[in-house]
Amino acid sequence: MRSHEKWVQGILFILATTAVLTVLAITFFIFSEGLPIMVDRGVTGFIGSTRWEPLSGSFGILGMIIGTIQITLGAIALGVPVGLACAVYLAEIADRRLEKILRPGIELLAGIPSVVYGFFGLSVVVPFLREHFPGNGFSILAGSIILAIMILPTVVNISENSIRSVPGDYRSASLALGASHWQTILRVILPAARSGIAASVILGMGRAIGETMAVIMVTGNVTKVAGSIFDPARTLTGNIAIEMGYAAGEHREALFATGVILFLIIMVLNFSTTRFSRKAGDVK
């Protein structure tokens, strides 16, 4: 009996290490494929250059980094206010009827495949922008709009949780001083929940930066740095997905190197969310 238990525990432990091995393997393979060309081109030739011309051997991804930042900031600017408002609504004032539709609705938003979002963006958002604004519709704005919708569930769920975990004592104290419910939300509850809200924004950002299919279907994917939100742009993820199909040699290495940069950005964001959620609470 005893030895049998030992075996079970051993096997389960091995299974539990799979996640660790996977992370190690991913890191190892992405870096081993991508690092050589990064070292070869140096920081200036790779991260510091906007010239991406695989045929002539120029692999500067600065343009894609800028594109990723532009589209992500746009998505945050559009998605976070709506998402945060939904979270406050759900946590504080929702009437049962709307809540009963809104919750499954947000779950559903999280479940729709990114390629379907991309398809919707391509068939509705892009033509709409083409008609009413300058440019041909494939643009930073189109990407930001679609990503804003896609990050809503992340922002809503995590913000709502952090708002709900604010102690009821604070609410009572504020109301007892004659504050309105809204004043209480604005001046006590949201500040007390701010670390969780910040975490939700960062996770939303991570989702936006990592999103691939929806983005390449609506942003136009040109490597030139965009001058306005109506210009097309290419993201890091888009760069990999579009060219991976036919890339070979140095070109393929450069795509893996793009993956290295993407990987590093996401890791930094993940680290900062764990830091944020660790120091909960204090409002200054």
């Binding site: 102690p167 004592d169 604070y170 009572s172 104290a173 504020s174 007892a176 006590v188 500040p191 007390a192 609470g281 204090d282 409002v283 200054k284």
Partner: peptide, 9 residues
């Protein structure tokens, strides 16, 4: 209140 409830400020 029964339990001191200063705001986290």
């Amino acid at each position: 209140f029964q339990k001191p409830n200063p705001f986290p400020m």
